[in-house]
Nucleic acid binder design. Sequence first.
RNA 1: GUGCCUGUAGCUCAACGGCAGAGCGCUUCCCUGUGGAGGAAGAUGUUGUGGGUUCGAAACCCAUCAGGCACCCCA
Length: 424
Amino acid sequence: MKKIIQSVKGTRDFYPEQMAIRIWLYNTMREVAESFGYQEYEAPILETLELYAAKSGEELVKDQSYAFTDRGGTEITLRPELTPSLARMIAQKQKELNFPVRWWSFGPMWRYERPQKGRTREFFQWNVDMLGVATPEADAENAAVLATFFQRVGLSPQQVLILVNNRRLIDDRYDAFDISAEQRPAVSSWIDRREKMSPEAWMAYGKEIGLSPEQITNLKEMLADKDLWKQSVDLMRFFAVIDVLGLREYFAFDASIMRGLLYYTGTVFEAWEVGGEIRRSILGGGRYDNLTRDVGGEPIPGTGFAMGDVVITLILEKYGLLPKDLNINPAPVFVTVFDEERMLESFRLASELRRAGLNVICYPEAVKLQKQFKYADRIGAKVTLVLGPDEVEKGQVAVKSLISGEQVSVAREALVAQIRKIIG
RNA sequence: GUGCCUGUAGCUCAACGGCAGAGCGCUUCCCUGUGGAGGAAGAUGUUGUGGGUUCGAAACCCAUCAGGCACCCCA
């Protein structure tokens, strides 16, 4: 084979088979989001680097962004996440929007990272956000969209769990343990890493970042305390709503959930596969009350989550929950061409059927019928039509069902009805 | 950005440093007006790419590209 120009590293081609899955995912997300009254929006894929400088986290901006200078000298980046764009859009119209706004989006993001299982450089992300209200009830209702999505696709609480924490709750603990403001990012990162390190290495690392033995003991006790959330009014109210929505099984408190993004201010959450075979969070979200201010607007509180298409697809695949009956052939009706002489008659017939509201393919070359039938079978057509000398003479069309194999000849006037009978 | 593993026909994979193969798929025919099942015959290829070692490289070495796994980070 000739050398074919390579695609860009970390990108995926969506052939019709994969596109069908993406569209299915998109439709499911849309239905769930709309059932909670969320409206769809979209932001540009290109944004100024400045937009992310404030709060997205140093690594995301410095090392993982697709950044370049455009012809006008502006520093541009392919969006690595959507929330800052959303904050910008909200801030721009802060005087005219009817708060709270509920918005959702599904589009491509870019991060310059090393691709591996569950991670690509271009990925699609479902973003669901509510802005304008700072209540824990808003957090809970927003997170409920997510749990409802899990329900809808058939993922059970035994398979996926949404782990919830609250940054203010943890900050109170940090205060109590005399952990300084400067130390806190390192401590959060230390907690985040607990599952990935041996207990000994983890303890040693704790000392390394300057924690006293007493502080380490306190923090370990904090992480072990399953009822810690009851000390947080926010989380009490959050779980109360989740309870009445009948979604409690999907949620669990976990004091080790920290979230890397700097802009989170309150309740935060991540979803994980329970078995833990796919060691990667499925999504992340939480409350961010300062983001519109950080992009130059009035402070408008917000809460939301983002889910990438790559990991959720892996999870759905693992549990056999991807739809298997996705028919990627949109045209169930196939018109064969008998020979050169009758080719135009076939095209005319196909056109008539399309005007009658059917999706129709006509073979564009006068080759052997055997080849045309084989092709029709392969692409998943349901019914095949033949316009041969016999049929034309009688004013009929031969109609063969590729499902049952039965074939009948019917008058042109009865054709559409006959086809509809077969394709259902 | 770091470490490790992998790359052979369209696909899944074999081949001790010594003639590049199998299964599936594909093409043609059995069947001059009909798909799926069956039978027969046929074609698969710059062994990811570029160098090197060797009488001889798919295999060994170096570089590079791509994929995977673990870090880092995160959707």
